[in-house]
Design a protein around this nucleic acid. Structure first.
Lengths: 361, 361
DNA sequence: ATGCCCTGATTAAACGTTTAAGCACGCATA
DNA sequence: TATGCGTGCTTAAACGTTTAATCAGGGCAT
């Protein structure tokens, strides 16, 4: 039955101008030998007729679909919007479409998702792997966004350095006993951030790591983390490696009547949507997602190559050396110098008005 | 140069079995007349050779790509993960791929995004429109997810009823003066929720609407909303129409030393990631995104149709009557009976331990 | 005047599938 | 025995593009 495509095709343009379809193709792609005047006439005619090339036909002929796959560990992850937006933008600037696939935190589903994309003929894919997963060789160019310490990684924020920056920030404010809060000990990203934090805080600072996953294994999901007790025990700063944990810490401390930042400081990571609008606004580390996405897409496109001949050599991982993109410290109102008189807990929340949030320029 | 596709094609199977390619096609699609035994042999051979059909060739021939587009007002929206995940899941169950397009909150970009998807030959698209936008006729089946009161909407959560449920919840707790908090007065979804809230609260309850957009126009982004003053003025409940605003309210009130839920109650909408883990955990309304996505995809597939002949009739909007999916009230710790002795403000945060969060079963 | 190369175009095949149309054969009916 | 029909398969065309191969013609050197 063959559903007729809406618009005109190359033959229509060719017929209208009395030339062959191949010439139209050459003119529009700029590949063969066509006289400049004719190229112009063809361009004009194409525009006049509202010609739109059939991506399907092109894909069939060239083996290139012009589509990239984006595989995410869990779309429900709050960081996802930033990633997806940046990747979509970078890809679309490069003329590629983005097909999404969610692995829902499951390794089996991750493989399945990758296969679905492969069947759809994506030219390459960006994979943000599930924590601790190593991506096996796929049948197409792949860019992995995880953390520089992950083997086979392509491009990532410099999580370690981000941790170090935050560590120095807290240390320079005078904090000497800091609780580091992570979600899962199996996350490479979180481990790198924590490593950086420890290094940035320096040898003179006492610190301890709290893994939420372990606390919840005992107390159930969403259970209290017992941060008030930690404050009483002398911790003056709570450095979470994710804004979600930071928010959890902030509200738990506030709720216990411990003032932030007067009594203790709280910091996060990733500058998620709520960070600028909570009270006090969260001091956090921001990734340059746009830069990361640009690098990932550029690497992918390089690997896809202009002709696909040397693909064999590049088919596996896209780059040998990971590109590290620096993170940026965003100082807001949740950090300050540690309270130095009395116990932190005695320093109840003041009846002051909340400080004004940052005003974006 | 023609990059050779990896796997075998129909001709390979046909050759191996000594039959024609057309028969293979018929056997695998179950369309033509092929003997049961031969079908079985062909199936087996296909599996043996690891045959994967070329979607490009099929698309070229049939005019169907098997890909749906997902157009979002702003990927950075915190609600987006839920939507994308649900749509991706529903589509992939139905054998469709999902191409994303971000309109970045911009109407012009929204049109542009739609066109990009169209050029890529999507079979249909799911559009979550930018606030207040009406989707013009596109050249393919479209499912609009907004709110039932939007003309041309296809499927949506029953935002009004959700508001009503929340209103009744607050009213039954005894609240008689409630501040409704919205972001933008131009959002149909938010207006519906607020309408429902007012109705659910009933005539005996005094309420006022605070639009954050207006406050920020004067005070700058992220500025304080002045909720402590509202509490002093006798408001005992703060019902936000988004969890982001609710979180903002919660932290601002906590920071001012006003106990939630002892002194005042705070409620949100959408059950975003952080809602269960903040202290106190947020009482909120949850959408059944999976159901919404299933309905949207089902409607789309119905409109795409088995043959595409009657497409003319359905090309515009997919359904005449909007499917309303009920919302679900999730009661957590941020709501309670209003404090009845003294002024709310005098009831400072108690030095109690935070209550335990909900434990998922 | 002949041969050669360069330019600007054309022709034709190919990518892998779907599908309308056709064909041969066996079986039942007239 | 001829007619007709349903079954099971084949043939061939088509979808719209890209691209290798070819070709006609003009300018230039020999």
């Amino acid at each position: 039955m063959a559903i007729p495509r809406s618009g005109p095709n190359m033959s229509a343009i060719a017929a209208a101008l009395g030339v062959s379809a191949a010439t139209v193709s050459n003119a529009l792609s700029g590949k063969g030998r066509v006289s400049p005047e004719l190229i112009e006439r063809i361009r004009a005619k194409a525009a006049e007729l509202g010609y739109v090339p059939s991506l399907a036909a092109r894909a069939l002929r060239t083996g290139r679909t012009g589509v990239l796959g984006l595989v995410l560990p869990d779309i429900a992850n709050p960081l996802f919007p930033q990633i997806a937006q940046a990747i979509e933008n970078a890809a679309s600037n490069a003329g590629y479409g983005v097909l999404i696939a969610d692995s829902r935190g499951d390794v089996a589903r991750q493989t399945e998702a990758i296969n679905r994309l492969l069947e759809r003929g994506v030219d390459g894919m960006v994979i943000v792997p599930r924590r601790g997963t190593r991506i096996a060789d796929v049948g197409c160019p792949v860019a992995v966004i995880d953390t520089p310490s992950t083997p086979g990684n392509t491009v990532a924020a410099d999580h370690w350095d981000g941790g170090a920056q935050m560590g120095r920030h807290l240390s320079s404010l005078g904090h000497r006993k800091v609780l580091l809060i992570g979600t899962s000990a199996s996350s490479n990203v979180q481990n790198d951030r924590i490593g950086g934090l420890k290094a940035g805080l320096g040898a003179g600072v006492e610190c301890e790591v709290l893994w939420i996953e372990k606390v919840e294994a005992a107390g159930g999901e969403g259970c209290p983390l017992g941060l008030a007790e930690r404050a009483e025990a002398g911790f003056t700063a709570f450095a979470a490696v994710s804004d979600l944990s930071a928010l959890r810490a902030l509200t738990e401390l506030q709720r216990a009547g411990i003032g932030v930042p007067e009594a203790v400081s709280v910091t996060g990571f990733d500058d998620l949507v709520w960070s600028p609008v909570v009270t006090p606004a969260l001091t956090t580390m921001r990734m340059d997602m746009a830069a990361i996405a640009d690098l990932a897409i550029a690497a992918l496109i390089r690997a896809i190559g202009p002709e696909g001949e040397a693909e064999e050599a590049l088919a596996g991982r896209v780059a040998s050396e990971t590109d590290r993109v620096p993170m940026q410290l965003v100082i807001r109102q949740s950090t300050g110098a540690p309270y130095s008189g009395g116990t932190p807990n005695s320093h109840a929340q003041p009846p002051i008005k909340p400080t004004a949030g940052e005003h974006k320029s």
